[in-house]
């Protein structure tokens, strides 16, 4: 498998007078799992649509391996954007059957793995004769995941793939994703609201907020920059001195702060002041960062 990067430079998207993406630039490296995180309406789907040439950008450029992606059949054959299939189309019900969708997918993706697709159909317990409009939300998510994994496309985008899945199916998805990631050199970009259980899967996170890319960082590095400090208020305040505070929670005389610029020096000060120093979960960090921006 080749190792090309997907690069976006100064992407802007305007709907009418409203700009929904404000000059986003990013590079997606080969063999990496990205988590695309953002609140509803942050522009995640629009961004993914633009990166995969399904939505035209108002300005900016997207290239894959140095070639523009827009209307480029060669580049697009290596990119898969799997989004939830709608049970309705504009003129009524979506009457496509799963087997028709799978057959269509096999026409387009040069690396399409028919045997793997069949294996996934069995693993998910899907009836390929069923029409999309007759599938439950969870089953439609399974079809989305199936298409993404069996496409074997070097760069694969999944838009909210686990939204309709129960906890068992979500676990199954993350297992399959990691298996596929280990056996190939594929890049995955996954947008999700259920951050906590996916946090361990993401190697890098892209935080999108109100159409701007707030952060694009290695997950472990990002999390290492923040810490929860908790203990008696005066001790915590002393330990956290000089560090930016993202969040504060008071319970009686004890307080918990989420602080940035965490490093070894901070750990030492925490020990000196008898303050507990704990890692911040990705989901919480996202809530604080998004909240801070809003404030």
């Amino acid at each position: 498998m080749n190792a090309k990067t997907l690069t976006a430079v100064d992407i802007r998207k305007t709907y009418g007078q409203k700009e929904v993406l404000h000059g986003i630039s990013l590079t997606l490296l080969p063999h990496t799992i990205y988590g695309l995180i953002g609140r509803n309406g942050a522009g995640k789907t629009t961004l993914m649509g633009i990166l995969t040439a399904q939505t035209p950008a108002t300005s900016g450029s997207v290239t894959y391996g140095g070639e523009p992606v827009w209307e480029n059949a060669r580049a697009l054959s290596e990119i898969c954007f799997s989004r939830e299939l709608s049970p309705t189309v504009l003129m009524g019900r979506n009457t496509f059957r799963i087997k028709q969708i799978l057959r269509m997918a096999s026409y387009y993706y040069p690396n399409w793995d028919k045997d793997y697709a069949q294996k996934l159909v069995e693993a998910f317990g899907l009836d390929v004769k069923k029409q999309i409009c007759k599938l439950s939300s969870g089953m439609r998510s399974m079809v989305t995941i199936l298409l993404a994994l069996a496409s074997r496309a070097p760069v694969t985008f999944l838009d909210e793939p686990v939204a309709g899945l129960d906890v068992v199916a979500r676990d199954q998805f993350y297992r399959l994703l990691l298996e596929e990631y280990e056996r190939s050199e594929r890049t995955f970009v996954i947008s999700t609201h259920i951050i906590e259980e996916a946090a361990s899967v993401f190697e890098k996170v892209l935080f999108l907020d109100h159409g701007s890319l707030l952060l694009a960082e290695d997950t472990d590095t990002l999390l290492s920059h923040y810490a929860y400090l908790s203990g008696r208020e005066e001790d915590v305040r002393a330990a956290a001195e000089g560090r930016p505070v993202l969040h504060r929670e008071q319970m009686g005389r004890s307080v918990t702060l989420c602080v940035g610029e965490a490093d070894e020096a901070l750990s030492q000060r925490c020990r000196a002041f008898d303050v507990a120093c704990d890692p911040v979960p990705l989901q919480k960090l996202f809530v604080y960062l998004a909240g801070q921006k809003e404030a």
């Binding site: 399904q54 059949a73 990119i79 954007f81 189309v89 269509m104 993706y109």
Partner: peptide, 21 residues
């Protein structure tokens, strides 16, 4: 052809076809 354009055209783009093709 009304239905074909509404149902199939968006699917082809979703599978990575160019608009021209």
């Amino acid at each position: 052809f009304l239905y074909a354009s509404v149902q199939v055209f968006p699917m082809t783009l979703q599978f990575g076809s160019t608009r021209k093709a």
